[in-house]
Design a protein around this nucleic acid. Structure first.
Lengths: 204, 204
DNA sequence: AAATGATTTAATCAAATGATTAAATTTTAA
DNA sequence: TTAAAATTTAATCATTTGATTAAATCATTT
């Protein structure tokens, strides 16, 4: 049993495996993804994968860390910036999520799905930033609408912005959206969602 | 190879297997669910499962049919009812989804996730009702806001209503929602979402 | 060039898993 | 009550799948 500890460097092979892992895991999820799929996708031998990453779980964990940061990374810099006003934050959250999700449409379903199954593990393993009362956005929302829990507006912004990407296959099946329409609709939403959110902020 | 065609009747054993299948598939998804899990959960022998349902796929398909109908079944009776006005439809969609999802919080993630992976199969196998231009809700939306694609409002209503259930673990991890808060927030949304949607309808 | 260490491969293992079979038991019908 | 059919079980297959191993090849250093 020769155990050689590999110090991670950005070698070509290791990167190829990780690229393939990203693709396969994102497409199929952890359970349905086979290490052989990943090996084939990256054009390397199956043993290499275990040589570099020790196990499917470890490889998955690395991908998952990236993806969680990618998903939440959009949000935190914006909501923590105390030098922008509420309206600007709304515009930025929507615009940045639409930009990012247009490039990674599978991301939200992947992240939210895997977070559900392994709630115990992931929340402890991955250091996820927390939203507290003194986050700038929360304070601004509380000041604007002291009568409404700020979490509602977060749910609204994310719901309106992220949900279409999650439900895209459903919207397709239901007959409302063919492939090219989707992109058009999403681009329209970039301007519309902030308008609606601001209207909701005023609504009594 | 003795093939006995079983005519489905609501026997106790068959129902027990299906109950267990619902539970396990919903909790783990198709790929991560093992037929042994289902057998154990239903208190029967593994062979029984194959005796009654022939295969994991067949059993899954039956559960999936149910769940798709459960998920979309809330929507169609409401949006097709041409004797209710727009505002009523909004209230009903939100209220009925919140009722249903409070009892089945895992449903949306399950359905949307499985619809994505097997888009080809499911959309052809399961007869999903289609939303067309002459659906009552669509006509009402088009009349009220001819400048906006009706699909936007559908995305908004469902996004605001369904997304919180999909993202619940994420909201937990992010530190904004402990278990009991969630139910409180959802109940608040029952009244708030219609207010916000109606405000958005008027927003220019 | 030789030696050492890193990388890659083919072959194989062991466990997990979907499915089947043959026999036993229970239920139903005559 | 008995014969036939339906139900249930234990045991077993065959395949899939994550992982390992031992050997081969390649790269780097001396």
């Amino acid at each position: 049993m020769t155990k050689k500890i590999k110090i991670e460097k950005d070698t070509s092979t290791e990167a190829k495996i990780k690229d393939a892992a990203r693709k396969v895991f994102m497409q199929k999820g952890f359970a349905a993804a086979r290490t052989r799929d990943i090996a084939e996708e990256s054009g390397i031998n199956l043993a290499l994968l275990n040589y570099y990453f020790r196990s499917k779980e470890k490889l998955f964990h690395e991908v998952m860390s990236e993806k969680i940061q990618q998903f939440f990374g959009v949000l935190f810099p914006i909501i923590n910036n105390s030098s922008t006003k509420l309206e600007t934050k709304i515009d930025l959250i929507v615009a940045n999520y639409i930009d990012m999700l247009s490039e990674n449409p599978d991301l939200p379903l992947f992240v939210l799905n895997e977070m559900k199954g392994k709630r115990g593990q992931i929340n402890k393993t991955l250091p996820i930033e927390k939203i507290t009362k003194n986050v700038s956005l929360v304070q601004q929302l509380q000041k604007r609408r002291p009568d409404i829990n700020p979490v509602h507006f977060l749910m609204n912004i994310l719901g309106m912005t992220v949900f279409p990407f999650i439900a895209r296959p459903a919207f397709g099946a239901i007959g409302i959206l063919n492939k090219s329409d989707f992109e058009t609709v999403i681009e329209e939403r970039r301007k519309l969602i902030p308008v609606w959110i601001k209207a909701a902020l005023k609504a009594k």
